[in-house]
Design a protein around this nucleic acid. Structure first.
Length: 528
RNA sequence: GCGCCCGUAGUUCAAUGGAUAGAACGUCAGAUUGCGGAUCUGAAGGUUGCAGGUUCGACUCCUGCCGGGCGCACCA
């Protein structure tokens, strides 16, 4: 990747200058390479001269000057020019030849373009949604669906062995409550049409057994179906009840006990999580003998790390689980897996109807299900809409605007760009182009190539920081350039050589755009 | 009370401490006898909640305040 190359070369230049005694000895900080917004400042840019000014005991401009000269002298020549600017930026400008060659590279690598190896030999699991099986998926608890799904796709593309998992909490009090609700006895709490449906299907009379059966139906007939409609394919559905059946929970509790991390107080058993960074100790077995949610979750995570050998586990949780983060992290740390668990907290969705907030409650039977939304606007639109938002955003979702927004959703803009270039390729018929890439000289052709080669960077950045909203943004930017290219550069023309060159660029663009869409789990129609 | 997250254009949202804060929708004005007009071009629209601070540089980091969401269980 070109970006890594610049980092290496710049680092080398700094070290060379240190050897020559121009710079004093100091540890070279991380070199950041970015794309300047204004193209006058080049294709890539680094602020390293500003960063090391104090260490090098020279002015940033002087350092930038020295570095750019050194970079030009030491080679290899990747850029036509390297310029320095104002406070101390070093700006790099691509050579045409380099860009033109990239088209061939993309055509050669095809769907593998953007495939990285930063996750080589490492296994990662993404666990997401994992909503309690006490009702259908709501808009709120399905928010993490597209995020987790796409994060999994990105990590796979980055070279990790990836698994997507749903943890089914079919054990404990909420199952009992669900049972009572289905039986509609005096302790019933959940309401809604689905409860009426379950009442007919569930024959069990014992409240807990009725709850278990109902949970099973909810998972099989509702949650799995909705996930599938959303385009999510899980590799694993892990049931909490199975962790109890297999004694995994008991084993983990014994392990903690052996380490002297369990104590009894007022009839309950506590885990000394405060020893591992938690703000208080956590109850792990209640005085009535029931194990808490945490007990199951610890067992689940030990299963992930020790049985399944994941090097990294990413959990996507609703922000209401904020209070549980430290407890689980403490257990992970206590059992020797510190640093392997990342938890992404997803802020809440506020559903609005005509500007009015809708309070969601399964207990009151008031909620908007993901299925209703899917009926209204379809999976591509929902996925795109949700993917555009960062996890930290307190998302406002206006139902009355949903239809209108869906009709004008940028996802169609992207799909249209794809369909359009497919149409050109259909028209051209031939699939093997003998292209002279030097003919790709138009400024939009070069801009388009620059955008295409950002794709691996998008993968790398997202695999590192989990900021998935970068991908829809990239898709829009790429589509914009494609539409502009379409306007200004007629592909199929009398000029046969130019036609061939442009067709190859179109094919390369199609490859990248299609990969971007498939990363997002959004369809790439050839016609629309 | 304490902790986490958020406050950016009319609206929904972007922006690894960088250069003139960007898109989309909406609004207004334009473009086709050329490969798909679900497109393209342009304009209007911002004191990034407020006040300080850190630094060459702050939407971004720190402090305080205002407003909102979430959490602080022997519930999951």
């Amino acid at each position: 990747m070109i970006r890594e190359e610049i980092v290496k070369l710049t680092g080398k230049a700094i070290k060379n200058l240190q050897k020559e005694g121009v710079f004093p000895a100091f540890k070279v900080p991380e070199i950041l390479i970015e794309h300047p917004e204004n193209e006058l400042y080049g294709d890539y840019s680094t602020n390293v001269a500003l960063k090391i000014a104090k260490l090098a005991k020279k002015s940033p401009m002087e350092i930038a000057e020295l570095l750019s000269k050194k970079l030009e002298a030491q080679g290899p020549k990747l850029f036509t020019k390297i310029k320095i600017a104002k406070p101390g930026f070093i700006n790099f400008f691509f050579s045409k030849e380099y860009l033109q060659n990239q088209v061939e590279r993309i055509l050669k690598e095809k769907d593998n373009f953007g495939q990285l190896d930063i996750g080589k030999d490492k296994k990662v699991q993404v666990e997401f949604i994992s909503a309690n099986p006490t009702g259908p998926l709501t808009v709120g608890n399905a928010r993490g669906g597209p995020l987790g799904d796409v994060l999994g796709n990105v990590l796979k593309k980055a070279g990790f062995k990836t698994e997507k998992a749903y943890y089914v909490n079919n054990y404990g009090m909420q199952i009992l409550t669900l049972g009572h609700s289905v039986l509609k006895d005096s302790q019933a709490k959940y309401k809604g049409d689905y409860i009426n449906y379950l009442q007919k299907k569930v024959k069990e009379k014992d409240p807990y057994k009725a709850g278990e059966k109902a949970a099973k139906i909810i998972i099989e007939e509702m949650i799995k179906k909705t996930s599938k409609r959303l385009g999510i394919k899980y590799d694993q559905w892990v049931k909490e009840s199975d962790l109890y059946k297999s004694k995994a929970v008991d084993r983990v509790l014994k392990l903690l006990e052996k380490k002297g991390l369990i104590y009894e107080k007022e009839g309950a058993k506590f885990f000394k999580s405060s020893k591992f960074g938690d703000e208080r100790d956590r109850v792990i077995i209640k005085s009535d003998g029931w194990k808490t949610y945490l007990a199951g979750d610890i067992a689940f995570h030990i299963y992930k790390f020790e049985k399944k050998k994941f090097d990294k586990v990413i959990n996507i949780w609703g922000a209401d689980h904020y209070g549980d983060v430290l407890g689980l992290q403490a257990a992970v740390k206590a059992l020797g897996h510190e640093g392997k668990l990342d938890i992404i907290l997803l802020q809440f969705v506020t559903v609005l109807e005509k500007g009015e907030k809708k309070r969601m409650s399964k207990r009151k039977g008031v909620f908007v299900t993901m299925d209703e939304l899917l009926d209204k606007v379809g999976p591509d639109v929902i996925r795109f809409l949700l993917l555009q938002k960062s996890a930290d955003t307190h998302l406002n979702f206006d139902l009355s605007l949903a239809k209108e927004q869906s009709e004008n959703n940028p996802v169609y803009y992207i799909q249209y760009a794809h369909a359009r270039i497919c149409s050109i390729l259909r028209k051209a018929k031939s699939k093997n182009f003998k292209a002279d890439y030097e003919l790709l000289n138009h400024s939009l052709e070069l801009s388009l190539i620059k955008e295409l080669i950002k794709f691996p960077e998008v993968i790398e950045d997202t695999a590192k920081d989990y900021q998935v909203q970068r991908i829809p943004k990239y898709a829009i930017d790429l589509s914009t350039l494609l539409h502009q290219f379409y306007r200004d550069c007629k592909v199929i023309s009398e000029d046969k050589a130019l036609t061939q060159a442009r067709l190859s660029l179109v094919l390369a663009s199609k490859t990248v755009l299609k990969n971007t869409l498939s990363l997002m789990g959004i369809s790439a129609p050839e016609r629309m």
